[in-house]
């Protein structure tokens, strides 16, 4: 900020989502300026729309867990494990390349069930056994990845029917299918958070877990549902990844955990819980995709991108933390009066 912003602007920019919208526009303009002939093309727009949904869906999973003050670091493990479940059904039980649409749907259902089961496992560890979410999901993530390796011996599973490609590469009414999937899931999550009792309770629990217990909120079931939702979102992401890669493997999307956390934090979700909006996460996803595509066109290496992601995560934290601290501080203040 060079010029002192007018008070109205100041108030608007106090909203993390508004700040983010501004950042998004800046990134877009910057990329458009740096590579106008490649960035501002319909082809680029389409390719971006196919690329981001897979990690954007994972970011939704992180968002819902972060709202409760937790985190799910097992999402990539779940995504791969579920993709492998689906791929094994298609290739081992079904006749592989010749498998019909019925087999495909069955394999998708199995993957979703797998995601729900994995989420249930996390939820039980966190809600009923009282493990800290960080360690519970780090540990379970290793187990899910390990299972994925055990199922496949660590090699990629291939040889799917052509119908697999639809979820990740198809188009419906001119829109990329993965984009539609993400849109539906994001709208759904936004709806759940703002218009359902479950969503309200998630945010209240995130703001003060102990008070939620004393207000007779069904904490255990709430957390269970949150982690099951996270697991199922991860499963969907896994299926999209599988479709786009036309294969399933235990170590796909290794960098997506970081990316998903980055997007959630960038989107203004408070990692201590209690605050976060899906619109922020969507803006963050778009910002990241603009940045990522732009960097791609500028032929920046994968490693440099990793560097930029890490730097960005910390930078965003620095900017946002001022607000969070102001929001959190009173809870930590000593009892009694403040003045």
């Amino acid at each position: 900020m060079t010029a002192a912003p007018a008070p109205r602007w100041g108030r608007l920019l106090a909203q993390p989502e508004a700040r983010l919208a501004l950042i998004m526009v800046i990134v877009f303009a910057l990329m458009a300026a740096l590579a106008p002939d490649r960035f501002l093309t319909g082809q680029n727009a389409t390719s971006m729309a196919f690329q981001f949904p897979e990690f954007a869906i994972l970011a939704l999973a992180i968002t819902i867990t972060m709202l409760t003050g937790g985190i799910d670091l097992s999402i990539v493990g779940i995504a791969n494990c579920c993709a492998i479940i689906s791929s094994l059904i298609l290739t081992r039980l079904a006749p592989g390349v010749d498998a019909g649409i019925g087999w495909l749907l069955l394999s998708y259902l199995a993957a979703l069930a797998g995601g729900a089961a994995a989420g249930l496992f996390n939820g039980v560890l966190i809600a009923y056994l009282g493990l800290p979410p960080i360690l519970a999901t780090l540990g379970s993530g290793l187990i899910f990845t390990g299972l994925a390796v055990a199922f496949t011996g660590g090699t990629a599973v291939m040889g799917f029917p052509a119908s697999v490609a639809w979820l990740g590469n198809g188009s419906l009414m001119g829109l990329p299918v993965p984009l539609i999937v993400f849109g539906v899931l994001a709208a759904g999550l936004s709806f759940v958070l703002s218009r359902t009792g479950f969503g309200l309770k998630v945010q209240m629990f995130g703001a003060n877990p102990l008070a939620a217990r004393y207000a007779a909120v069904d904490i255990e079931r709430l957390l269970l549902k949150v982690y099951v939702a996270s697991g199922m979102l991860a499963a969907v992401a896994g299926l999209v990844i599988m479709s786009r890669a036309n294969s399933a493997k235990a170590d796909y999307g290794q960098s997506y955990t970081l990316l998903a956390v980055l997007i959630a934090v960038l989107g203004g979700v408070n990692p201590y819980g209690g605050y976060g909006r899906v619109i922020g996460v969507v803006l963050a996803v778009l910002t990241m995709q603009f940045l990522s595509s732009g960097l791609n066109m500028l032929q920046v290496s994968n490693f440099a991108r990793e560097f930029i992601w890490g730097a960005l995560l910390i930078l965003v934290m620095v900017i946002n933390t001022r607000n969070w601290r102001r929001r959190r501080a009173p809870a930590a203040a000593p009892k009694g009066e403040t003045r």
């Binding site: 970081l258 490693f303 991108r305 560097f307 930029i308 890490g310 730097a311 910390i314 934290m317 933390t321």
Partner: peptide, 18 residues
């Protein structure tokens, strides 16, 4: 700056390597 340790070290994990 008082940032949460998990998020920072998750960031530097990539930052250092990248």
């Amino acid at each position: 700056l008082g940032l949460p340790t998990l998020i920072v070290t998750l960031g530097t994990l990539s930052l250092f390597r990248g």
